[in-house]
Design a binder for these strands. Structure first.
Lengths: 123, 123
DNA sequence: ACAACATTTCGACTATCGTTGAATTATCGT
DNA sequence: ACGATAATTCAACGATAGTCGAAATGTTGT
């Protein structure tokens, strides 16, 4: 992770709509969500959503894949972890280790699948 | 931490200069650095640095305090940790805990004081 | 092939960001 | 009180971001 990569990622996250999209995808996990579902949940016009999804994609924070008519977006957890590590790197001159790590492979202890929270994602 | 607080913080970090300033302060720890020292290290004009320091301060990521003629800036580690937590909140529907925590109070095992790295902060 | 659906592309407009240089405020030493 | 130093404020300018609506692209089912 270099500084231009980091600023691109941070810039992508530095917007109400994109942050909401990103957090929705983080909560959703590797399965991701179709663009239309995201648009409906956040009440966005198609072209506006596309614009924001492109920002996040170009920053490398999310990935896209086509499934029939729909395009599924999902968090790139490696990129997310790299960004965290970059921000906290060498914290306090190396006094402490602050290495946040998300492991999407892990399942919940109760075995339930990740759900899409509804109320918390209102625009 | 709410979304507008988070976007403000992310927007503040989403700039080459401010990111370099922030990381410099993170590495420095609670002691912080005077504005002039930062300006000299990054080769910035006074007014430009002030502008960026204000962005970071208003976002709540850094604090300022006066010491004689100089104004010392330091990372607000609580704000930093809160931001990390917000980004990774409810990750994968709660499958994993990803809570990055920096504890500035801790000292290095070798007892050395945090130094300001030089080469890694070139603008 | 054709109509319906899902998403992206394009053009135009407004608002905000970031830089620069000159002037201003605050503090120190004498 | 005065000059020097440290940092901020202000005004002006160019560049980029974000929004909207209309049109275009790709995909499915019949």
């Amino acid at each position: 992770m270099d500084s231009s990569q980091a600023t691109a990622s941070l810039g992508a996250l530095a917007h109400e709509t994109r942050l909401a999209v990103f957090r929705m995808l983080v909560a959703r996990g590797p399965d991701g969500l179709a663009a239309g579902v995201i648009a409906q949940n956040l009440g966005l016009t198609p072209s506006s959503l596309t614009f924001h999804l492109q920002q996040l994609t170009q920053a490398g924070l999310i990935t896209q894949r086509r499934v029939s008519r729909q395009i599924i977006y999902a968090t790139d957890f490696t990129a997310m972890n790299d960004l965290m590590a970059y921000l906290t790197e060498n914290c306090c001159g190396g006094a402490v280790s602050c290495a946040p790590v998300c492991q999407p492979g892990a399942r919940r202890e109760d075995g339930a699948e990740p759900e899409l929270p509804r109320a918390s994602f209102k625009a």
